[in-house]
Design a protein around this nucleic acid. Structure first.
Length: 388
DNA sequence: TCTCAAGGCCAC
DNA sequence: GTGGCCTTGAGA
């Protein structure tokens, strides 16, 4: 998996590369050699990938399977519980689960891209001779960098190739975006609903300020927060590099960013001066409900802040990377601070890369960062609400 | 011109 | 039906 930030320590990694280089050397002595770009593992079955097929990195069999299934997938049925593992080089894979995994990983005919990938990204030409290799000193890792193919690991070790940085940041952006989208499907549906009812002429429902109503809504709000916790935990668990967090730090990260994450899930639902997040299929967490649940003052502050963030009209990729960046920026009481600092470096750069891609100007960046800095304060405001 | 993903073909 | 290999054609 090219997205894992660390599976081997640097010594192990260096050793692995060194062995690989010696193997390549024995096959290609004294000639110019091109090391092809490594597509990594097939996203469906973890076999060796042969390229980008229907939008994602897959092996030939999974490419063929997806192609055949475009017509046949309706016939597929799972005889187990629809969570069969899709293993490489096994012909008896469950077709239903394999097809579901193709969809989940993002295979689609809409993502078909013809033509070549720019050489600047895809290939790195290296010239070497026996002479050079025999001079390689195992203790001087820097000397060997010139022979290491472009990979995420090399980026981590080298931090000096512009081309590779773009590739890594782009992969990180895509993966984070995909994970966020996956976790936030429910809220995306709220957005569709919101746009529809705004078009029809939105009128908020009135709730009487009775103790009974407040208790009822608080209970709904609490259940809503429980399901939000599951979504955030799932998102954090799957983010590249975050699997290295231990349980304690994971909990700290969850606690210290719980409501910031709710914000990132729902900023797009702040429309027309109101909030269109749904506590369940019937109850909208609009301004009036929020006032009953949180109290007037907190509701007003949260609304003002959320409308401000909503006004930036962030793209989905910006939202996803901001969420990951915030998680690593505002988690303070951690044991493994170095790890989170390292993750913060990556996600911060990926976010900056996306903001640049979207041609965000200096004013935008300054204003956005200024608002981001208010997140811990808003988070605390929320956390102090007594929902009991 | 070259690269590479899509789709075709066919042995298994 | 699967998957390895080949041809085709888009695009850098």
């Amino acid at each position: 998996m090219p997205f894992k930030i660390k599976q081997l320590d640097e010594q192990e990694l260096f050793h692995a590369y060194y062995q690989e280089i010696l193997l390549v050397k024995s096959r290609n002595e004294n000639r110019t050699h091109e090391i092809s770009y490594d597509f990594g593992d097939c996203k469906i079955c973890a076999d060796k990938s042969t390229g980008i097929h229907y939008g994602i990195s897959t092996c030939e069999p999974c490419k063929g399977f997806f192609k055949r299934s475009l017509i046949r997938h309706l016939e597929y049925k799972c005889s187990q519980s629809q969570n069969c593992s899709i293993l490489p080089r096994k012909t008896k894979k469950c077709k239903f689960c394999r097809w579901q995994k193709c969809l989940k990983e993002g295979m689609s005919v809409e993502k078909i891209r013809m033509g070549r990938i720019p050489n600047s990204i895809k290939k790195h030409k290296v010239n070497y001779s026996i002479q050079t290799l025999t001079e390689v000193n195992k203790n001087k890792i820097l000397d060997i960098y010139e022979f290491i193919p472009f990979t995420f690991y090399r980026e981590r070790l080298l931090n000096k190739s512009d081309e590779n940085q773009v590739l890594v940041l782009s992969l990180l952006k895509d993966k984070t975006y995909q994970l966020f989208k996956e976790c936030n499907k429910e809220f995306d549906a709220f957005e569709t609903r919101a746009l529809k009812i705004i078009q029809l002429g939105y009128v908020p429902i009135e709730y009487e300020r009775s103790k009974e109503n407040i208790d009822f809504l608080r209970q709904k709000f609490f259940s809503f927060l429980q399901s939000h916790a599951l979504v955030v935990a799932n998102f954090i668990n799957k983010l590249p590099g975050f699997d290295r967090l231990d349980k304690r730090d994971f909990n700290v990260m969850m606690r210290e960013n719980f409501f910031s994450m709710l914000g990132y899930r729902s900023f797009k639902l702040f429309l027309e001066g109101d909030c269109f997040t749904m506590l369940d299929e019937n109850i909208q967490l609009d301004n009036k409900v929020a006032s009953l649940v949180l109290g007037d003052e907190i509701q007003r502050k949260v609304l003002e802040f959320s409308l401000k963030i909503a006004s930036f009209k962030l793209t989905d990729a910006e939202i996803a990377l901001s969420a990951a960046f915030v998680l690593t920026t505002f988690s303070k009481n951690l044991l493994n601070k170095d790890l989170v600092r390292e993750l913060n470096e990556y996600y911060g750069r990926a976010l900056y890369y996306v903001l640049n891609l979207n041609k965000r100007n200096k004013d935008f960046l300054e204003n956005y960062i200024r608002e981001l800095c208010r997140l811990p304060q808003i988070n605390k405001l929320f956390a102090d609400v007594d929902c009991s």
